[in-house]
Amino acid sequence: MAALPEPHGRPAISVRDLDITYRVSLEARPTLKGAIVRLGRPHKSIRVVEAVKDVSFDVPKGMVMGVIGANGAGKSTLMRAVAGILPPSKGKIEIHGRVSTLLALGVGFNGALTGRENVVLGSLAAGLSRAEIEHKYEEIADFAELGDFMDMPMRTYSSGMYSRLAFSVAVNMDPDILLIDEAMSAGDAKFREKASHRMSDLADNAGTMLLVSHALGTIKDMCSEAIWLHKGALIQRGDPDEIVAAYTKFLKVGETALTMEDV
């Protein structure tokens, strides 16, 4: 599936036969009391989720790859797997390059701590050295344009400020590979423009991106290729316009068409 010529001849992201299953609790808040009270009653509180099934694809260096699919298609799970947060159940993922993530489900911040503390802690956890963080901190703070708020607890932030800081951290890590999950709606119109400029810069500088979005326009504009996931399986891969068209058609026609193709 080699697409573009690459300097090292190896893709930035290579996903092979990836299966991801995990167990989730059906209880809102699993408790010991609940488990004891439930004893002796044949009640299942655990469900196994097969979030990604037998997915293989490569993302060559410098490519912006879009990921589309309905809710529950496994897009976010795939992103977490590529980020190394959720190791595969089967298969293999190989990454060449420094990865930075901007995932939708919470941004990794603790509301009781200040913006500055959160940035430092998050970067240390991501494996940066103190010297690197010191070097990048100003850039991050400048880009987010939060001013004095950087030294205030993050629970005082508005949701726009929150996502601005998250975006700023993700893009200022000088990533080779950027994983973005539904995070393009950051901030006001002005910041959004700045953000999309920054994304284009990264893409132009041979940055690799894996982009999950429900905004099909963004996928068409930004990506040079797209994949379509449905219920954990990779349905189609190719030119973003084609994939988006097929996906839109599928959404209109409904599930029957796909199940027939699937068989």
Binding site: R80, A83, G84, I85, T101, V107, G108, G122
Partner: peptide
């Protein structure tokens, strides 16, 4: 449990 957000977003 209190490190939840960080765990869901960072591999460490």
């Amino acid at each position: 449990v209190s490190g939840g957000r960080l765990i869901m977003n960072t591999s460490f």
